[in-house]
Design a protein around this nucleic acid. Structure first.
Lengths: 199, 199
DNA sequence: GTCTATAACGAGATAGAC
DNA sequence: GTCTATCTCGTTATAGAC
C-alpha cells in the first residue's frame, strides 16, 4: 500500500481516473481519448464530460491525485523508516512498483508531452518534481549527517540527478519490457550514493 | 558538426525529415500531423505521402537518420579524442546540444511513445539504445584500463545507467526550460564515474 | 513531384431528454 | 448521473489531374 487509493473504483469518477491514469502512463496524454476511457469504464463520452469538463480538467485531476498519492507514500516512508539509505531505497522502490505494472511514472510521461500540455498541467508536473527534489535533498542531508550517504555536490543537485536517473531508467527499461534493467540502474545509483571512501 | 546533416534541406524529402524530426522531438510522435509538416515545409499533404507513404514510414526514416547521425558522432569522438573520460564528456555533450535546441532526444521521446509505435519503429529505438550501450561500455572499459574511470559494477550496467541518467535528465530539464539543470546532472554523473578512491 | 478534391474515420465537445 | 443524437474539426490516406 505504498501507493494507496489505486484499488478504489466505487464511484464513476474514481473509475474514470483509474482508467485514464493507466492510459496516460502507458500511451501518453496525446494517445488516449475520451472514447477509450468511456468504453473501458462502460459509460458514454458525455458521462465523462459530466465528471471532467474536458481533457485538460481530467489531466489536472490525474496529476493532482497522483501527486497526492506520491506525497503520502513519501510521508509513509518518513514514518516507517529511520536510516537515510533505506529511505532512498524505498524511494527507488516506489518507481519500481510503477514500472512493474508496465507503466511509466505519470509525471515522467507528462514531461515528455510537456510542450502540448495545458498550462495548469504543466505547473502541476513541475511542482511534482519540485516536491520530490525537496524530499530527496532532505534525505541526502540526513544521510550525510549520519555518515551513511555521501554527496559529491549540493544535495539539491544530487536530488535532481536521482530523479533524472530513475525517470530515465524507467523510460528506457519500458522499451526493453525489462524491469530488471531498471533495478540494475537503481542499484548502481544507490551504491554510488552509499558512503564509500569519497567526500 | 557533431551532428552533421541537420542543416541540409536541399530536397523536399530532407526538409520533411527536418521539420518532422523537430516536431517529434518537441511534441512527441502522437502530437504532430502530416498537416503540420506540410504547412511548415510549404507543400501539401499528398506531397508528403509521395515521399513517405505513411506516418510509420516517416517515423522509420526519422529514427534511421537520427541513429546514423548519432553513430557518426560517436565515431567522430573516437577519431578525435583519446582519453576515456573526455569521450564520456563528449558523449554527454551530444545530449546537451540536443537539449539546447529545446528538443528531447528523438529516441528518448519515442521511448515515451513506445506503446503506440509501429513495430519497425520499436525495434529501431531499441537498437539505438543498444548501440549507445555498447559504445559506452567500451569507453568505460578503456577508462578502467587507463585508470581514469571507475566502475562499481559490470560496464554494460554502468553504460545503461549513463544512458538512463542522461535521457531522464533531459526529460525533466525540459519541463523547467532549464538546460543548466541537465548540465548539473551530467557533471555529477561524470564526477561519480571519474576515478575517485573507489573500486 | 506536386497539386485539387475527397473519402473515411475518430477526436473533443454540446444540447437536451430521461 | 447518464443517455441519444449531433456538431465541428482534424486526422490519415487515396484517386486522379497536371
Amino acid at each position: 500500500m505504498a501507493v494507496p487509493g489505486r484499488a478504489g473504483g466505487r464511484d464513476t469518477a474514481s473509475q474514470i481516473l483509474d482508467v485514464a491514469e493507466r492510459l496516460v502512463q502507458t500511451r501518453g496524454f496525446n494517445a488516449f481519448s475520451y472514447g477509450d476511457v468511456a468504453a473501458e469504464v462502460g459509460v458514454t463520452k458525455p458521462a465523462l464530460h459530466y465528471h471532467f469538463a474536458g481533457k485538460a480538467e481530467l489531466g489536472e485531476a490525474l496529476v493532482a491525485r497522483y501527486a497526492a498519492r506520491f506525497q503520502a507514500a513519501l510521508e509513509h516512508i518518513d514514518a516507517t523508516t529511520d536510516a537515510a539509505a533505506k529511505k532512498l531505497a524505498a524511494y527507488a522502490d516506489l518507481y519500481q512498483q510503477v514500472l512493474m505494472e508496465d507503466r511509466m511514472c505519470l509525471c515522467g510521461m507528462l514531461a515528455a508531452d510537456y510542450d502540448t500540455l495545458p498550462d495548469t498541467m504543466r505547473h502541476a508536473v513541475v511542482t511534482f518534481f519540485d516536491r520530490n527534489e525537496t524530499w530527496l535533498a532532505g534525505v541526502l542531508e540526513q544521510g550525510i549527517r549520519e555518515g551513511t550517504l555521501r554527496a559529491s555536490g549540493p544535495s539539491r543537485e544530487i536530488a535532481q540527478m536521482v530523479i533524472g536517473t530513475l525517470e530515465g531508467a524507467m523510460l528506457v527499461a519500458r522499451t526493453y519490457h525489462d524491469s530488471a534493467r531498471f533495478v540494475t540502474t537503481a542499484k548502481c545509483l544507490l551504491a554510488e550514493l552509499a558512503r564509500g571512501p569519497g567526500s
